[in-house]
Simulated scan of single mutants.
Amino acid sequence: MTAPRPSSRAVRRRGETGTLSLLEDLDHAVFRSVARMSTPVLDEPLRRVSDFADFSKPWFLVAGALTVFGGSRGRRAAVAGLSAIGAASLVVNQPMKKAARERVRPDRHFHGVPVRRWVRMPTSGSFPSGHSASAAAFAVAVGGVLPGLRPPLRVAASVVAFSRVYTGVHYPSDVLVGATVGVLAGRLAARLALRRRPPTDLTVRGAS
């Protein structure tokens, strides 16, 4: 008697499970590679960056400076940036984290993250990274309104995102997905800001 052939749906599910397993293995492998980086000179700076980025403090400070010193274009960029943070945070911290609540934070002991890098481990789920989402959202939104600020803001956002993996509180996929959400929110916010009243000069004085 021959065994029943699995249905196409069962085969598809097995394939999806296998793919997810491979992606998770790759995710963990990259995380371990970062954990084992012998770069003690970066430990303290990146730990401080990761801590300082809590509650989007860097982006609120930049938005404040743009509001005070950037004129009407600066204020428009600040509003776009903060709006993008709000939208990205709402998407990440509500439906996405709730849907992926089973994704636990990395085990820093198990993966060998040096203790000197550690920051406070958040109690929320690991997926996706809220810090990365906020950083990308602000950088893309403000950079869309003020192109002169695009390079430094993107570098700053990338450093914040990498610091979350380096300090051991997020897997790389958490950061990549969070940053993707942030980019989408930032583009939408910049588009709305420019559509409302396109500025004639999109550079900040002294930043072009």
Rank of each mutant, 00 (worst) to 15 (best):
residue 121 M to R: 15
residue 108 R to T: 11
residue 78 A to S: 13
residue 123 T to H: 14
residue 152 P to H: 10
residue 130 G to A: 13
residue 125 G to W: 11
residue 128 P to F: 13
residue 112 G to C: 04
residue 151 P to D: 10
residue 113 V to K: 05
residue 90 L to F: 15
residue 153 L to F: 07
residue 107 D to V: 05
residue 91 V to C: 03
residue 117 R to Q: 06
residue 90 L to G: 09
residue 116 R to P: 00
residue 112 G to R: 05
residue 91 V to A: 14
residue 115 V to D: 10
residue 112 G to F: 03
residue 108 R to G: 00
residue 127 F to A: 12
residue 154 R to H: 15
residue 118 W to S: 04
residue 92 V to Y: 05
residue 75 R to E: 09
residue 76 R to S: 14
residue 132 S to R: 09
residue 148 G to P: 03
residue 124 S to D: 15
residue 137 A to S: 10
residue 83 S to N: 14
residue 141 A to P: 02
residue 103 R to N: 08
residue 106 P to A: 04
residue 88 A to K: 07
residue 121 M to A: 13
residue 88 A to W: 04
residue 108 R to P: 04
residue 98 K to P: 00
residue 84 A to D: 07
residue 130 G to M: 08
residue 147 P to G: 03
residue 74 G to H: 11
residue 132 S to V: 07
residue 150 R to W: 06
residue 107 D to N: 14
residue 144 G to T: 02
residue 156 A to E: 04
residue 95 P to V: 06
residue 90 L to K: 05
residue 110 F to I: 02
residue 79 V to Y: 07
residue 93 N to T: 07
residue 102 E to S: 13
residue 157 A to W: 04
residue 158 S to R: 12
residue 135 A to S: 15
residue 101 R to I: 08
residue 115 V to S: 11
residue 142 V to K: 05
residue 77 A to D: 12
residue 156 A to W: 11
residue 79 V to S: 12
residue 126 S to T: 10
residue 103 R to E: 14
residue 77 A to T: 09
residue 75 R to N: 04
residue 116 R to H: 12
residue 102 E to D: 13
residue 94 Q to H: 08
residue 115 V to Y: 08
residue 91 V to N: 01
residue 109 H to F: 13
residue 115 V to M: 07
residue 101 R to N: 11
residue 122 P to I: 09
residue 134 S to E: 13
residue 130 G to P: 06
residue 144 G to I: 01
residue 94 Q to P: 00
residue 128 P to M: 08
